[in-house]
Simulated assay, not measured.
Amino acid sequence: MTIQRDITAHIVAEYLPGTPVSELDASYDLLENGVISSLDLLRLIEWLGDRFDIPFADLEISPDDFRSVSAVEKVVRRYAGVTAPE
């Protein structure tokens, strides 16, 4: 499974149940369209951290980094496997 497909599948399962994965366009604005609330964003960040081994607590991120599946994929590709400073 590709990173984008994995992220899309998770978002659909958690926040858009009953929607086919193929219907969520990678550029669809998840925040503006109310798919992901501020609380959901925290849950998504936690899942991404666990799934892709990203220490988000040690990184500079903004809500825009999670605006769409494409934006989330860029964040994952940028930070996946980054280890937290000691």
Rank of each mutant, 00 (worst) to 15 (best):
I45F: 11
L48S: 04
M1P: 15
L30W: 08
E23Y: 15
R77H: 12
L48M: 08
R77Y: 13
A9C: 04
G49H: 07
V72E: 00
W47V: 00
G34Q: 08
D29S: 03
Y15R: 05
T19G: 14
P63H: 01
W47K: 00
L24Y: 08
D6W: 12
L24I: 03
D25M: 10
I7W: 02
L48H: 07
A9P: 08
V69M: 06
W47A: 00
I61G: 03
S37F: 02
I3Q: 04
P63G: 04
D65W: 06
T19Q: 15
P17S: 11
P85Y: 11
F52S: 04
E23Q: 12
V69T: 05
L30V: 04
D40V: 09
A84F: 01
V69F: 06
A9G: 06
R67E: 06
D29E: 04
V82M: 14
A84V: 01
L30S: 03
S62W: 10
D6I: 12
S27F: 07
S62A: 15
E14Y: 11
R51D: 03
D40W: 10
E46H: 09
D25F: 10
D50M: 08
V75T: 12
G49A: 10
S68H: 01
P20T: 09
S27T: 05
I36T: 01
M1A: 13
L42E: 02
S70C: 10
A13N: 11
A84K: 06
H10I: 06
R51M: 03
T8G: 02
K74E: 14
P63I: 02
I61T: 07
L39Y: 08
I11M: 03
L41N: 05
Y15S: 05
R43K: 12
R5V: 15
A84I: 01
V72Y: 02
D64E: 09
F52N: 06
F66I: 02
V72R: 00
E46S: 11
Y28I: 02
V82N: 14
E14K: 10
S68R: 01
S70D: 07
L24V: 05
I54R: 00
G34T: 09
Y79H: 13
L30Y: 07
T19R: 12
Y15H: 07
I36W: 02
Y79V: 08
V76F: 05
I54V: 01
I7F: 02
Q4T: 15
D53K: 05
M1W: 14
L42R: 03
I36Q: 00
P85S: 10
L16E: 14
S70T: 04
D50E: 10
L39S: 07
D29V: 00
F56G: 01
V69R: 02
A26G: 14
D58K: 14
V35E: 14
P20I: 05
A84C: 01
A84T: 04
A84E: 06
G34E: 08
V35W: 15
I7Q: 00
L41R: 06
V21E: 13
V12R: 00
R67Y: 10
A13P: 08
G81R: 07
A13T: 13
M1N: 13
H10T: 06
V72I: 08
D64Y: 09
T83I: 06
F56D: 02
